[in-house]
Amino acid sequence: MGLPAGVPGAPGDLVVDWARRADDGPFASVAVVDRLRYGNYDPLIALSAAAAVTRRVRLVTCILIAPLRETATLAKQVASLDALSGGRVTLGVATGARRDDYDTSETAYGGRGARLSDQLAVMRSQWEDPAVGPAPCRPGGPPILVGGTGGPALARMAAFADGYVHAGGPPRAFARAAGQARAAWADAGRPDQPQLWGMGYFAFDDDGAGRDYLLDYYAFVGPFAQRIADGLLTTPLAVREMLEGYAEAGCDELLLFPATASAEQLDRLVDALAR
């Protein structure tokens, strides 16, 4: 379950309460998105708040734009969140797709892919270094998912991560990306299979606010934003079809993010999934 932390203007208590209610079930995790130059909450801060009011759900970044952050500090923050939450963190990372996030930070946009690869190696090492606590709950640190499209991103995923997180789309798009992720995994000589995570957006009976949010959030991708907005799940049937399609394509976990910050949407999703 995505938290509404990515919807600009979502009240803090709504985000926290959303996490608490997601923990009551049937959801396996709560997830947050990341942007710098946008009205969302910082992902690790939002998950820390969520950690304090939940006991069961995993705490997932989908994704966190790691290159924007100083690596050792990020590693310590993630290890801290993992330790404070009893080992519930799954760290999804990617380079992100927006240049203006980089221009707002101290990180250069060029070389972001190589930087992310280095960061993953450094974080893994730091989590094993007894001199830098807290010790993560799992040897080697929390599970890492890498997102992004294209060969180099998939190769990075296969070299450093535990799995792949897809950026959203219909089941067919996920299936194609999942096939590539499995291929990259085998090509890197990794045993078994990568974890495969997907994501989607929902707004039941959307009055246009959910659609507008997606058009705004994805404005940077140009005309394709229309397609993303068209993929908004607005009915229980659409949600169930999405779940089935993703399950069939081998998705281990599908994250559904609200496109509007309204508490009633959470009830409706619980309802839709119960049917």
């Binding site: 060969g151 180099p152 998939l154 190769a155 590539q180 992720a181 090509d187």
Partner: peptide, 12 residues
């Protein structure tokens, strides 16, 4: 590929 980590594969 895999000559160095900086290769540009396709996984189609």
């Amino acid at each position: 590929g895999h000559t160095t980590p900086a290769f540009h594969p396709s996984y189609d």
